[in-house]
Each structure stands twice: as C-alpha cells, then as structure tokens.
C-alpha cells in the first residue's frame, strides 16, 4: 500500500531524513518511533504530499506522491502533529467544509459528518467554536477530518500527544478499531502506545531507520542474555553476593537496593535457558535464606529504544 524507497530530504544544508526505505501492507498498522526531531514528521509530510523529497520515491496505493499528488491526497487522511484547525468555525461546519474538499458527494456530506462526529465523540461540543475547544476535543476534530472520506491510508502524527489519560485511552481504542480496514501509520515518541496499537515498529533516529520489526521480535532480538531480579531476606549483601557467585551461574551481580538483611540484586545468566527457577529456591533453602522475590527482568520497549538509539551514537 505504501512503498518508500531511499527517501532523503535536506533542509538547506541540514539533513532531515536520509535513505529511508520501508513498505506498509494493506490493513497494517505501522508504528513510527523516534525521539523528537528524528525525522518522523518529515517522512509523513512527504507521504502526504505537503513537501517533496530531495531524492528517492514514495508511492501510496501505487501512485507517486510527486507525480500523482492529487490521486495520493484523495486516498490519505492526515492528522498533523500540531492539529491546525480553523478556529473560527464550529466543528460541524468545519467538517462539512473538509468533506466537500475531499470530494464527499453533496447529499452525503451531512450524513458523513454526523457519522464521524459520532465516532470520535464530538456531539457534546458541536455548538462551540473550534477555537474554544480543549486540546483533547481539538485532537478529535483533527482525527474526524482525517477520517471523513473513508481514506484507505491514515497518517497520524503523534495523535495522543497532550491528552489526558482517559482521552488517550479513547483515541487508542478508536485507532485500534480502525485496524484491518485501513492502512495506518502512527508516529509517536510514547513507547507503550506502540506496543498497544501497532503490529510493526519502525525506529528512526537522526533521520535514519535503525530498526524495523514487530515489538515482540525487537524485544527478543535485543534481550541477549537473561536477567533476573532477586530479593533475599536473612543475609547481608556481601554474604549473598558470595553465595550467588559460588553457584557459578551468574555474571554481573549487582546490588540494587536494600540494607541489613533485606537486599535486592540484579543478576545476568552466563548461559541461556538455565532452569534457575528450580535451582535457586533449593539453594536458598539450604542456606536458610528467605527468597522474597525472583523475577525475570524483561527488556521493555523503552530499554530497546534507548539501547538502539545510544548504540547508533
């Protein structure tokens, strides 16, 4: 559905993005992840035909964004990061205006606007001017205008930024509801959002793509050796450290917190797949120590992200 090849964009002498390539299948939700200023918005602006790339090609539904810009724009619903709206209109009037520009047939405009306002939950503010709306409602108006003409492709630039937790949940549910029917690109720098909504993640940093996979695969790939957190009662930290060392299964035994006879450690396995959950309690029982906590420390998407971004540097 979306095909991006070697996309590069320069702003004067500054580099926006460099050699970005990826494809998105029909019905897929792609998460676009990166720190601020990484090039997410630039890529999206090129895809929505707002500005052209310095080099490289991008195709949406088989149409080139530069050659067949009008065809591409007909198929795209776009929510820019800043949600720029005309503040002197009321939502229904604004949406009717946009519906017209997007080619919704005359007689369907009213019905379509009512439908979309229902979907995003705008009915309670229909009588207010857009300029008077709170950030959350403006975001909904922005989302509504993107959805108006049932576009095949939706491009949402940080759709949940600046919303309160309840609103974030609403918007995420809405986005999830769109999955399958439409192809979706979603940019964000809030990581849990990606795990919750996206099937595939693309991590971009300083204008370059540094990873592309499913959230699960990314976690696995970068996990490396297994890590555990252990909380031990009934022994000093040096005593426990020596004991754990004596088992000869761990490397990097780090004391995390605690004092006296209650300490937490983070340990890393020397070899993968050792059955530690069986052996460790037995060992502790022999020593007459209390095992308060034993858990695997999984890598969160945050860890992966930071790892990737710092590796690059």
């Amino acid at each position: 559905m979306i095909e991006v090849r070697n996309l590069t964009k320069h702003y004067g002498s500054q580099r926006g993005i460099k050699d970005v390539s990826f494809t998105v299948e029909k019905g897929e939700i792609l998460g676009f992840l990166g720190p601020n200023g990484a090039g997410k918005t630039t890529t999206m602006r090129i895809l929505t035909c707002f500005m052209p790339a310095t080099s490289g090609t991008a195709k949406v539904a088989g149409f080139d964004v530069f050659e067949d810009s009008l065809q591409v724009r007909r198929r795209i619903g776009y929510l820019p990061e800043t949600v720029p709206l005309y503040t002197d209109m009321k939502p229904p009037v604004y949406l009717a205006f946009v519906a017209g520009l997007k080619g919704v047939p005359y007689r369907d405009v009213k019905k379509k606007v009512a439908e979309v306002m229902d979907d995003v939950g705008l009915n309670e503010v229909a009588h207010k001017y857009v300029g008077e709306l709170s950030k959350g409602y403006r975001q909904r108006v922005g989302l509504a205008q993107a959805l108006l003409h049932d576009p095949e492709v939706l491009i949402l630039d940080e759709p949940t930024i600046g919303l309160d937790p309840r609103q974030i949940k609403d918007i995420r549910n809405l986005i999830k509801g769109l999955a399958g029917k439409r192809t979706l690109i979603l940019s964000t720098h809030i990581l849990p959002e990606v795990t919750m909504t996206c099937k595939r993640v693309l991590i971009i940093n300083e204008g370059k793509i540094i990873a592309e996979d499913t959230p699960d695969n990314l976690t696995q790939r970068l996990q490396g050796s297994m890590k555990f957190e252990i909380r031990v009662l009934g022994a000093d930290k040096e005593e426990v450290r020596e004991g754990l060392k004596g088992l000869n299964k761990f490397k990097n035994i780090n004391h995390l917190t605690g004092e006296g006879k209650d300490n937490s450690f983070r340990v890393e396995m020397k070899e993968q797949r050792d059955d530690i959950f069986k052996e460790l309690p037995v060992f502790f029982a022999q020593k007459k120590w209390g095992l308060r906590e034993l858990k695997q420390a999984g890598l969160s998407l945050e860890d992966i992200f930071i790892q990737l971004v710092t590796e690059e540097n």
Binding site: C49, P84, V98, L101, K102
Partner: peptide
Amino acid sequence: KSGTIELLLTYPIT
C-alpha cells in the same frame, strides 16, 4: 502561521 496550510495543501485540491 497557524499551520492550517498544511492540511489545506494535503487535501485533494489544486
């Protein structure tokens, strides 16, 4: 200034 041009120019109009 308000950025609305970004949306306007990404609508299918010439």
